[in-house]
Amino acid sequence: MRPPRPLRRPPLADTAAVSHGHGTGTGLSDNKLLMWVFLGSECLLFGGLISTYLIYRSRFGDGPAPGDIFDIPFTSVSSFVLLMSSLTMVLALSALQRGDIRNNRIWLLTTALLGSLFIGGQVYEFTTFVREGLGYSTSPFSSAFFTLTGFHGVHVSLGILMLMSLLISSLRGTLTTERSETVEIVGLYWHFVDVVWIFIFTVIYLVPSPTS
């Protein structure tokens, strides 16, 4: 019997031991690679929703047209809020990487709060639209609009849940510098949701929309 020699690495990819990419084929952490692969896939999801919106944006029938109803100044503010939440997210990561647990918590919380503010803005926007006569069933435009922005909102909300879980984990003392990669990966997701909004904000809101 030959002397047993362990395989180069056990397949325990989601453990701390290999999470920094030690011993993987590409030298990259499995988890981070997974997140990037996933984000590549998400591009096709949002692409589909955005194209649907673009095809339908001038099909508003008798209902309100996008150009009539969008409140650009308001949306600009909430877009700005989301953009800044990306900054706080990256600050949270950099704090944790320095071992600064306290600032890490503060920035995680701020990010989650900014995200919630954005969601609050979206809820306000939706209710205003409905009051102004743009229901989900009003026209192909309305369905496409609510579906696209709604999907984005669900993504942000999931991000907030993840941030809160990180925060809880931090309060329980398990979110340490060694696990900063988890924060980095949640951050990747968060920034992705932000860049999707950068796209939506310009293409859906700022580019002049048809009016009735």
Binding site: Y56, R59, G61, Y136, S137, P140, S143, T147
Partner: peptide, 17 residues
């Protein structure tokens, strides 16, 4: 969403394609 929530993605009557 068309079937269950009254969306209009595929309803030609409402101008969908």
């Amino acid at each position: 969403f068309d079937r269950n929530f009254g969306a209009n993605f595929f309803n030609p009557e409402m101008g969908a394609d």
